[in-house]
Design a protein around this nucleic acid. Structure first.
Lengths: 182, 182
DNA sequence: CAATGCCGTTCAGTATTTACAACACGCAAG
DNA sequence: CTTGCGTGTTGTAAATACTGAACGGCATTG
């Protein structure tokens, strides 16, 4: 990862000159110049000072995508979703033309008896969802919940969890998870 | 944001001593010590070297949550959602006890005539959703789409966008956006 | 109770980064 | 053309970060 290149790209995107950014950031223009040319590796504190003049956080700075986005599909009909069904559970993912998507947005159906498995799931990120039809059992850590139509949930995916439909009717669910580690 | 404190917390979480991490990272133990005590502000290059010994990326380093999570509500009945309705548009947010949520998960209703406004919306992040009932107009950049029940969408929120219901029936929508800049 | 080993801290010297001030270039106005 | 103002670059001196070799603390072990 090229710090100087990133800084220059971001600065120009914001339409700032080296001197302009330097003034806002409280550093000298030569500092900006040398950072952009990678002739120095700035200290965290000075890079943070520089970014404060944009303004931009460290996280943003290191995570912004510099490559220009290509035009991608925006609207998807029901049959255009990616089917990532697992066993009995039907899971359809929105946004097939967004390979680097930040959100995994799913339309899920748990038929009677469906289950994400005896072993609890644990991964990074957070997940949330809302139950549209039927009833569904949700286990998070030591707690067990029964969701009914209209109920929703939100929890950190690092907590062990499991979805199960022990009822007679299928359960339909819209869910979102981030990051989309699939 | 306290760089030293973060580094120490992460290092101990991984069960590494200063010397151990230093060896893996290719720096001296004194460097680690001084960074953790904030008696220096490390250069980007040396912090990156240090993190490579963990291993961890810059983005991760600056974004990991250090504070232990307190027990929070997981399941929400329909009436427990946060109402952030704006004008005619009804928007209910899932996860009121998650102030630092990564996802804004919304249950929205656009009555006939409802509109996010003539001025197009532009912000960081990505957004996605699925239309459950009715029809809805979505404008992204220069393109205009008509969503029908079952259709979904996914786009980068940096592209100017607008939602509008010019039809006779209300439109019901489940949406997710990240980061949750509300 | 040494002796060993690992821990984190500190100090002096060296290497790197920064500020300040010049510099060269391009451009537009007088 | 000359002047003035903007741009980014570069030299030098001062400030800061990094290394390598100490040190004291604490536990385990012979």
């Amino acid at each position: 990862m090229d710090v100087g290149e990133r800084l220059q790209a971001i600065r120009k995107l914001k339409g700032l000159s080296q001197r302009e950014l330097a003034k806002r950031a409280g550093v000298t223009n030569s500092t900006i110049s040398m950072i952009e040319k990678n002739s120095v590796s700035p200290s965290i504190s000075s890079l943070r000072k520089v970014l404060s003049g944009i303004p931009m956080s460290m996280v943003e700075f290191f995570s912004v995508e510099l490559a220009p986005e290509s035009p991608t599909q925006i609207v998807y009909k029901a049959h255009e979703l990616i089917d990532i069904s697992d066993g009995a559970v039907t899971m359809k993912l929105v946004g097939k033309s967004h390979p680097n998507r930040a959100i995994a947005f799913l339309n899920e159906v748990y038929p009677p008896g469906a289950d994400t498995g005896e072993e609890m799931l644990t991964h990074d990120g957070e997940e949330t969802g809302i139950l549209l039809e039927g009833r569904l059992e949700l286990v998070v850590g030591a707690e067990t919940f029964i969701l009914e139509a209209g109920d929703s949930y939100y929890f950190e995916s690092t907590r062990p969890h499991r979805f199960r439909n022990p009822f007679e009717e299928p359960a339909r669910l819209i869910s979102a998870a981030t990051p989309s580690n699939f």
